[in-house]
Design a binder for these strands. Structure first.
Lengths: 230, 230
DNA sequence: GCCGTTAATTTAACATTGTTAACTTATCTT
DNA sequence: AAGATAAGTTAACAATGTTAAATTAACGGC
């Protein structure tokens, strides 16, 4: 009803308004359950306005995901300052799991849903830049540990190690998100599962498993049903 | 146009016709991309007929999943005959991975999509019956190995071990399905990832990792894009 | 201070979706 | 033969993603 001509800042502001509305609805109720009209209504615009800022629902989705990737990378970056290599590695895994379990719908979007091969063009994230790319950080730490010969000598590809570590934590988290409430399985506590996984996979990869400190208090605490904004 | 009164066998036959049409479409193009009308058209019925056999799309989905669970359990059951415990464990993991990677859309349905907590009532699968419940089989083998004190002594919950093993293989497979084609990650070969994961997690869990044979030739071969029927 | 251009937004509309209600028709039972 | 029932269809509903057309307000130039 009242179109003012907008400065680039105002335009960006609306873009963010849409983005945040979309995110909070997606996170709260899942992607498919949320319609463009709903997102629009939440911020008192009509649905078509969204199309002025995002090509379609998928583009909006990717924009949300991009921001979430950045958030994940950010939370990891603090960890990179820890002095001890093994501490860093373990804290990285733990922080990753924490993110996954506290933002299950985000996580589902990001790592459990086959998106059309992540347009390297349309995405805003710089690949390989540790400030933006969480995977790059993991790779980096693993490479350090690899160069320090912490891993078994017959494993010659450090990126393979990084991917194995990732997959192990991802396995626990994604099973929890997909089937954690399923009465079919008599689940052990998520803390126990994460803890045993991390201990086992590391001790299976390391040359001297006895270097592993016991520690690793896994208290994810926040129940999965309590989904929250970022 | 031509309703004949149907014997229970004929009714069951149509049920299967629907089920198979649904499955092949789901597997080929994903769940959301397939409409009830499409499934119906494929077998030359009108959409409403499907509702005569399945309450709604979700029920149809669960029926498909049920059959797939059975197929997975079946493929595992052959393995249970292997004499050596560790062989059995490894073959079980391998067979699970094979299933996942050769039926990615099935797998996505079954283990990567939060279904409404698996109505233990409406499902046809008998929980705990090893002939029907793949998880029960894994649990069983793990318990055997646990009783034979193959695992590290300080792990006291054999079901936790089973869940950790499951999560490790699931982690590799589900990442491959969700992001395996993503140029973001410089993936090692899926064979290498599965092989390292299995070796590491077992050697991290076992009391005497040196018992592990090298073997484990992982050749999943079939490329992911070649989705096929069950 | 008017005027065309353009940006911002909305209303209307389209094709599809899952699903239900109403109807048709052929078969079975008595 | 008549009524009940099963099997199926057509028609319709509300909701979805998306697009085209229409509306409104601000800006730049004269």
């Amino acid at each position: 009803m009242a179109p003012k001509i907008k400065s680039p800042e105002e335009r960006e502001q609306l873009r963010l308004l849409i983005l945040n509305a979309a995110r909070s609805l997606f996170v709260e109720r899942g992607i498919d359950a949320v319609s463009m009209r709903e997102i629009a209504k939440k911020i008192n615009y009509s649905a078509t306005t969204l199309y002025n800022h995002f090509a379609d629902k998928d583009a909006l989705l990717q924009a949300v995901c991009d921001e979430d990737f950045l958030a994940l990378a950010g939370s990891m970056q603090d960890i990179m300052k820890l002095p001890d290599l093994l501490d860093r590695l373990q804290a990285l895994c733990k922080s990753y799991a924490f993110f996954a379990l506290n933002h299950p719908n985000h996580y589902r979007l990001m790592f459990m849903t086959p998106h059309a091969p992540c347009n390297l063009d349309t995405t805003k994230i710089e690949q390989g830049n540790p400030e933006q790319d969480g995977y790059a950080q993991l790779k980096w730490v693993v490479k350090e540990a690899f160069d320090a010969q912490l891993f078994k000598a017959d494993i010659t590809d450090y990126e393979l190690i990084a991917q194995t570590l990732w997959a192990s934590v991802h396995g626990v988290c994604s099973l929890e998100i997909a089937l954690g409430h399923d009465p079919w399985i008599n689940w052990a506590s998520i803390d126990a599962r994460l803890s045993l996984m991390q201990r086992s996979i590391l001790s299976g990869l390391l040359q001297h498993p006895d270097q592993l400190k016991e520690s690793s208090d896994f208290t994810m605490a926040t129940p999965l049903s309590t989904t929250s904004n970022i």
